[in-house]
Design a protein around this nucleic acid. Structure first.
Length: 905
RNA sequence: GGGCGCGUAGCUCAGCGGCAGAGCGCCUCGUUGACAUCGAGGAGGUCCCUGGUUCAAUCCCAGGCGCGCCCA
């Protein structure tokens, strides 16, 4: 027998192991079933499970379990991302604690440390996913740095290079001076900063006492100024265009140019141009042929291109010195407070520098074109649809994608440099050497990362008998490899059966914050290399916030740990909460109270099952739901079917909250509140035949309910299934999703039993309002009942008596006794003769209130029905409905007025 | 500056042209053989404001106010 409460911890551990051992998570490439594929967004190898993961993986697991039960060959492809910068930071931090830097170890030594770290403490998240009940095909777990995926990355790079879609270029990049690497636009966060706007006076050459005033938020960059721009139509400056200013502190002679970039409305209308350190200025410089002077080193300290006094200074130190020195020369016109946005590295948290370097770029614009078309044509669909705007917006304005990173952990770029800047891009070192040999016609040898040429090599090079190749030290942006995920995990570039079978995948489930980073890249890479979209649907889910709607963050201290919730309330409760809160287009406000509520829901289900077992409810193999005789059981079957149809419709439309709501409502408020209660008298004292039918029907409903709930609450349902019907080795996870047809609906039975519950409900209400003690049994009289009502009353009198605590149920035509409580049941009037028990005044008030409500309704209907326009223009059925309602309201009003008369009488 | 979303019960949110709903909270009652992680009942609403479209608007449209987010 079951315990009184469900204990999640034991059940969760038990079944997760069983499922895994049974191979229940595995896909079946050889099966005849239609595949259904979800690519799990690979979490960072450094990550640990947070609420956002819990949400996204729960939704994916719901879908995958649902489709698996529907008989699809379900593949949920798991894996992890090597997270280049984040992982390197973690390992470097650990090393720093021992006083070691990565340079002490050298590249190979450091990488060994990273792999070691990965083996020991990386990928915690994969283990944590099991706590959530996630059912991906673990045997197929992949890692972006494993051999197969690395091979895919190299091939992609080489192919794109040969197609001219990857190239090397010198451009401004977002340079992270702390991490010493370029980062992509997307890894830059704009942070609002309280800064200042300094106005400097630059003397115009040859015009004594004439200055041009420019404003800047970054005084130190003036040391790299190579021009001053004014708007071409700004008449204040027309006469100065073509002249020069002498850059203070530096003494450089720089031109005054006309360019639209200068905004006449802002400040003086003139703007200093620092092409090497500002993205806009870079463009102006390029247009106007200005010189580019790089004044920063990789630490954002001033380099030798500035006057000696400033060399080696940190950028902020330099800022103070520049301002002080200009002030001393009387060249500071004004200093204003100024709030502005400053770009920061999302990993390092320091202000990034636009910095001129050689980097590898992907021609994203070319790759984006088919990816845009695919969404325009609906070959990939966003749900909710509005997110496609975000996708289009970004894709249509896409910039060259800087893919090289100056770090060590990642896919090292397969490019080798020879003599005179020659580049050999090949998938292997041997191939690069062969190419180089063919190119140079002499011997070629490669050097390792930090290896110096030997004396012998140097001599041969000098003689022209040898060329040395050195591999590009940089690695690729992590998203370069994750963009290949939907096909690289399936074996690409090899033509594997899996690739043929599971690509394109069905749905990608992820948060909106990753549309640019990842969705867009998978679309581009998938279309380019596979010639087909990587997924037909992108379901964008909400962000999980705290109960007050704030983003969870460690610094705010409002983080709710999903593992903690699982421990306290069970994985099923957490899952159901997340699903129930997943309404499209709205963020999720997570609160412990909600989880507790759904834990109660699991307990409720548990106890309903417990009741069944106590009453020897057991499945009957010969049971045929179409052959059920009792109205109650036909009602229960119909309600089950309705719940099942609702869940199907909701899941197909990605309306997760509707699915959860339908199940919650059915389980608690139909199955438990009514069906079980209705069935009790039959189980306790019915005849053998009706008892047997009822037991079998309850079992049938329970079995279906467990199936329907399984994708949402896999653990408790699997446990109950085992207790209940499922034989050894027969698991819900591999069970068959109930397919319902309309043929099991029975509107007559539904109306009849719904009527019974209405009767009971009304009596309870009156009893409650009249403060009738719960142990007092009252008689019920029904007056004015039609034949159908009489039949129903006759058929269900014992049930009504029991549930409404009545001593008797009778039909009457006699006058209503004085002092009785009365209420309406459709055409009939129900009478509870409770003289002396109820408070007459209170009952009068109650009736009066109802009559008033009806009269106000009546005048509403009358107004409508006397409106010519309404009668002419509204659809006939709407008019008819209003007429019917008016008639019903009038009849009810009359009966209640009559009842009121009788009460006092 | 551009874009997206949201304002519905005390709270969190569904709904979306034709009776305004749920969960939680609150109040009253209840140790009846599944369940107090429970049961029965109840109170509680200018559906943000102003216009427009419509026979009919919480719902559609426009404007405003307030809030959140994304991109510059």
């Amino acid at each position: 027998m079951l315990d009184k409460t469900y204990r999640p911890a034991e059940v969760e551990a038990k079944f997760y192991d069983i499922w895994r051992q049974d191979g229940a998570f595995a896909c079946h490439p050889d099966s005849a079933a239609r595949p259904y594929t979800i690519m799990m967004p690979p979490p960072n190898v450094t990550g640990s499970l947070h609420m956002g993961h819990a949400l996204t993986f729960t939704l994916q697991d719901v879908l995958i379990r649902y489709k698996r039960m529907q008989g699809r060959d379900a593949l949920w492809q798991p894996g992890m991302d090597h997270a280049g910068i984040a992982t390197q930071m973690v390992v470097e931090r650990n090393l720093a604690a021992e006083g070691i830097s990565r340079y002490d170890l050298g590249r190979p030594g450091f990488l060994e440390k990273v792999w070691q770290w990965k083996a020991e403490s990386g990928g915690a998240i994969s283990r944590q996913l099991t706590n959530l009940g996630a059912s991906p095909d673990w045997a197929r777990e992949r890692f972006t740095m494993d051999d197969g995926l690395s091979k895919a990355v190299r091939k992609t790079f080489v192919d794109l290079y040969r197609q001219g879609l990857i190239y090397r270029d010198q451009r401004l990049v977002n340079w992270d001076p702390k991490l010493h690497t370029a980062i992509s636009d997307l890894e830059v966060e704009q942070v609002e900063v309280n800064g200042k706007l300094w106005h400097f006076k630059y003397p115009v050459e040859g015009e004594n006492g004439v200055f041009i005033t420019v404003a800047t938020t970054r005084p130190e960059t003036m040391l790299g100024d190579t021009g001053v721009a004014v708007h071409p139509e700004d008449e204040r400056y027309t006469h100065l265009v073509g002249k020069h200013v002498i850059l203070p502190l530096v003494g450089r002679r720089i031109p005054i140019v006309a360019d639209e970039w200068a905004d006449p409305e802002t400040g003086s209308g003139a703007v200093k141009i620092t092409p090497a350190h500002d993205f806009n200025d870079f463009e102006v410089g390029r247009r106007r042929g200005l010189e580019t002077v790089n004044i920063l080193d990789r630490n954002a300290r001033l380099n030798d291109n500035v006057p000696e006094a400033y060399r080696g200074l940190d950028r902020y130190e330099a800022r103070k010195r520049v301002v002080a020195d200009l002030e001393a020369q009387g060249l500071v016109a004004e200093i204003e407070d100024h709030v502005h946005m400053v770009p920061h590295g999302d990993r390092s948290g320091v202000a990034i520098e636009p910095w001129l370097t050689d980097q590898w770029y992907v021609d994203a614009k070319t790759l984006a074109k088919p990816a845009i078309e695919a969404v325009e044509q609906g070959r990939t669909r966003f749900v909710p649809q509005q997110w496609e705007n975000v996708y289009f917006e970004w894709m249509r304005n896409i910039q060259p994608w800087c893919i090289s990173r100056q770090i060590w952990w990642g896919h090292q770029i397969p490019a080798w440099y020879g003599r005179d800047g020659d580049i050999f891009v090949e998938t292997t070192e041997e191939a690069a050497r062969t190419e180089a040999e063919a190119h140079y016609g002499v011997a070629v040898e490669t050097l390792g990362a930090e290896e110096e040429a030997s004396a012998d090599q140097a001599a041969r090079v000098a003689e022209g008998k040898l060329v040395l190749l050195r591999r590009d030290e940089d690695v690729l942006d992590t998203w370069f490899s994750s963009g290949l995920w939907p096909f690289s995990t399936l074996g690409w570039p090899d033509e594997t059966p899996e690739l043929r079978r599971y690509y394109p995948t069905d749905v990608l489930v992820t948060g909106f914050d990753i549309i640019f980073f990842w969705v867009a890249r998978m679309m581009m890479m998938g279309l380019h290399f596979m010639d087909e979209v990587p997924f037909h649907t992108v379901y964008i889910h909400a962000l999980v916030r705290d109960a007050k709607g704030q983003k969870m963050s460690k610094s705010k201290g409002n983080v709710i740990d999903p593992l903690d919730l699982i421990e306290r309330f069970g994985a099923d409760a957490l899952r159901f909460t997340l699903v129930a809160l997943s309404a499209q287009g709205r963020d999720i406000k997570m609160s412990e109270q909600r989880v507790e509520g759904y834990r109660n829901f699991a307990t409720k289900l548990w106890n309903a099952a417990r009741f069944c077992l106590m009453n020897e409810v057991a499945p009957d193999p010969a049971f045929d739901p179409r052959a059920v005789k009792q109205t109650l059981n036909r009602w229960a079957i119909a309600k089950t079917v309705r719940a099942g149809l609702a869940v199907d419709a909701a899941l197909e439309a990605y309306r997760f909250n509707d699915a959860a709501g339908a199940l919650y409502q059915f389980t608690w408020h139909q199955f438990c509140d009514w069906y079980v209660e209705f069935a009790k008298p039959i189980l306790q004292s019915g005849d053998d035949e009706s008892r047997a039918e009822t037991r079998a029907t309850i079992a049938w409903v329970m079995q279906r309910l467990l199936h329907l709930l399984h994708p949402f609450m896999p653990f408790v349902t699997e446990e109950l299934w085992e207790q209940f019907g499922g034989g050894e080795g027969d698991r819900l996870i591999t069970g068959t999703w109930p397919a319902f047809g309309d043929d099991l609906l029975d509107e007559a039975a539904e109306a009849e039993i719904d009527w019974v519950s209405r009767v009971v409900g009304e009596i309870r209400t009156v009893r409650g309002e009249m403060n009738v003690p719960s142990n007092a049994e009252a008689p019920l009289l029904l007056k004015g009942a039609n034949a159908e009502t009489r039949r129903r009353l006759d058929a269900h009198a014992p049930l009504i008596k029991r549930l409404a605590r009545l001593e008797s149920v009778d039909l009457t035509d006699a006058a209503v006794p004085h002092g009785a409580a009365q209420f309406l049941l459709d055409e009939a009037t129900a009478i509870l003769p409770l003289q002396g028990i109820i408070d007459i005044d209170q009952e009068q008030q109650r009736l009066q209130k109802e009559i008033e409500k009806l009269e106000s309704d009546l005048s509403k209907y009358d107004k409508k029905l006397s409106n010519e326009q309404f009668l002419n223009k509204a659809p006939a059925e709407v008019v008819e409905e209003q007429r019917q309602r008016r008639a019903d309201a009038a009849a009810a009003r009359d009966k209640l007025a009559h009842a009121l008369d009788r009460l006092a009488g």
